[in-house]
Computed example of a mutant assay.
Amino acid sequence: MTPDEAQTLIDEIASQFAARTLEERLAWLHDSGRRIVFTTSLGIEDQVVTDGLASALPSASIVTLDTGRLFDETLALITETERHYGIAIERFKPEAEKIDRFVATYGLNGFYESVAARHACCGVRKVEPLGRALAGADVWITGLRRGQSAARGAVAFAEWDSDHEVLKVNPLADWSLAEIRQRVQDRAIPINPLHARGYPSIGCAPCTRAVKPGEDERAGRWWWENDTQRECGLHVAGAASELPARQNA
């Protein structure tokens, strides 16, 4: 798909999605005839998308990034979700030699030392595997919502991702957390038990904590950093996936 072709779809999606249900939005993508990949972190939003895909877009490939540092609850949910919907979720793991390089340079938990080190870890464990997961895809579906954080407040229904040269579609962009939770309740969607323990956003175990009262949904991710734009790089243009040289103190 070229950027011009993607822009045509972006304009159509912008005009079509607002008045449609999740299933209608996903079915509309089915009519595009494109190769579609959904990347799930097994978070509550992504479980809602998986539920919609099961009925409205079963031809979509569902993949997850198994970073090697996920919570046990997340790993168990992968298997539970596959069983619940009768689907296969393809796992993409980081390359062992790149993990070894990171550990040799920074130490196993070196991502606590600096933002650069944390970006390097996310690059090896998430960004590079994502590139492999999206290879050959035309459309990338995500569970991004505007209400997740200030940094995601302008998330559109669709955009062109120049890094991976895919049309990135966010069918839950305008959904609230309350709507997500109601959908989970109404349809008995399996979710991560950590959500009930104060984890609205769940990533790697060493980099995720429960949120405090009044904090936004993603405040528990990389909480030791001061940057209010904290992201792992999956949804940031130009995010590096190579390991940078360590800076001397």
Rank of each mutant, 00 (worst) to 15 (best):
P3N: 11
P3M: 15
D4R: 13
A6E: 07
T8W: 00
T8V: 15
I10N: 03
D11G: 07
E12W: 09
E12Y: 08
I13Q: 01
I13C: 04
S15D: 11
A18F: 03
R20Q: 12
L22V: 13
W28L: 14
L29Q: 01
R34E: 06
F38C: 12
S41L: 05
I44S: 02
I44P: 01
I44Y: 01
V48R: 00
V49R: 00
D51M: 01
L53A: 02
A54C: 10
A54D: 03
S59E: 15
S59I: 10
I62D: 01
V63F: 04
T67R: 02
G68P: 08
R69G: 05
F71M: 09
F71I: 07
D72E: 15
T74P: 03
T74F: 01
L75W: 05
A76T: 08
I78C: 02
I78M: 08
E80S: 12
H84I: 06
I87Q: 04
A88S: 09
A88P: 01
R91G: 02
R91L: 08
R91P: 01
F92N: 00
P94E: 01
A96S: 10
K98T: 07
K98Y: 09
I99L: 13
R101Q: 12
A104G: 11
E113W: 01
A116G: 06
C121R: 01
R125M: 10
V127K: 00
V127C: 07
A133Q: 03
L134E: 06
G136D: 05
A137V: 11
V139D: 12
G143A: 09
S149W: 14
S149L: 13
G153I: 12
V155Q: 05
F157V: 10
F157L: 10
E159I: 06
S162Q: 12
D163H: 13
H164Q: 11
V166S: 04
P171A: 12
L172R: 00
A173Q: 07
D174M: 12
D174H: 12
D174C: 09
W175S: 08
W175Q: 00
A178G: 11
E179I: 07
Q182G: 02
Q182A: 14
V184T: 12
Q185G: 12
Q185W: 14
D186W: 11
N192S: 14
N192T: 10
L194Q: 07
A196Y: 04
R197L: 11
C204E: 05
T208K: 02
A210M: 11
V211M: 09
G214I: 10
D216W: 08
G220L: 10
W222Y: 09
N226P: 01
E231Q: 13
E231C: 09
G233Q: 06
G238E: 15
G238Q: 14
S241K: 05
L243T: 03
Q247E: 13
Q247G: 02
